[in-house]
Nucleic acid binder design. Structure first.
Length: 266
DNA sequence: ATGGTAGACCCTCTA
């Protein structure tokens, strides 16, 4: 099973690019983020024509996540548990062939500080959301699921995942409190699929539209696929596909694809 | 020193 994750930065603006890529790469499952539309406005025909079922959690103008799957989607859960007041469309989870799969768009959290120098509402929301995600992962572990948490985590895990770590030291995507929280999630027993198979710096999934970041390769690695122990036993490959970032009308993110074997270690 | 990119939407916000 091949599972891709991709922040498309508006599924409407990106539709030709997304349709071309899905048609060419044919992942079994595609996790999309920042679709930036309500579920009713999702391009169901164009995606359905490619052979995908879909689970969509959307909202007007911002955020929005989806799971596309060639195999049936079962037991769809909309939203991350832990805060009934949270109306932002950032989480959807479903079962595909016995694997529990989430598409998540973790809050950005910038700016970190407000006018009075306190931590901003945006950043405290990010940290609270990460706590809820850790709680959800703990529940899935306790239930012994084979699972994959994929999406735009808005977290740079290590210095090697950033072209200029010193410059990003106080950014919400990299500051110590963010990395500590991400580690506390991973240390429940999850595996960062890309980092399990690749060493070294320079593997990025996001390049800002501004400042010629793509041409300078000023990138960061913030799109991740975290595997449960049973899923990591099936880990076969994980690659970043840089090609879509170089296209005309590109998203600022590019896809990451993990391949799971049909069965675990012998 | 300023604006610099992109998307959604109603002009400013988010990233």
């Amino acid at each position: 099973m091949r599972i891709a994750t991709w922040n498309v930065n508006s599924v409407k603006a990106r539709l030709p690019v997304v349709v071309d890529w899905l048609g060419e790469v044919q992942p079994d499952v595609a996790l999309l983020q920042e679709i930036k539309c309500e579920a009713d406005a999702f391009p169901q025909e164009a995606i359905g024509d490619l052979g995908y079922n879909m689970a969509v959690v959307g909202q007007r103008a911002y955020n929005g996540v989806a799971i596309l799957s060639k195999r049936p989607l079962e037991d769809v859960r909309e939203g991350l548990p832990g805060d009934p007041e949270d109306e932002q469309a950032r989480y959807v989870e479903a079962t595909v062939d016995g694997v529990r799969i989430a598409s998540l768009y973790l809050p950005n959290g910038n700016p970190v500080s407000d006018a009075t120098g306190q931590l901003s509402d945006k950043y405290t929301y990010k940290l609270a959301w990460m706590d809820r995600l850790r709680d959800r992962a703990a529940d899935l572990l306790n239930e012994d699921w084979t699972f994959v948490l994929g999406g735009d985590f808005n977290v740079i895990p290590q210095a090697m995942d950033c072209y200029d770590p010193a410059g990003w030291a106080e950014d919400a995507l990299y500051r110590l409190e963010t990395r500590r929280s991400f580690r506390s999630l991973v240390h429940l027993g999850l595996v960062d699929a890309y980092r399990a198979l690749h060493d070294g710096a320079g593997a990025y999934t996001f390049w800002d539209y501004q400042g010629g970041a793509w041409n300078k390769d000023n990138g960061i690695r913030i799109d991740h696929l975290l595997l449960s122990p049973q899923a990591s036993d099936r880990l076969d490959a994980c690659e970043i596909d840089r090609k879509p970032r170089g296209r005309a009308k590109a998203s600022d993110h590019t896809p990451v694809i993990v391949t799971l074997k049909d069965r675990g270690l012998p």
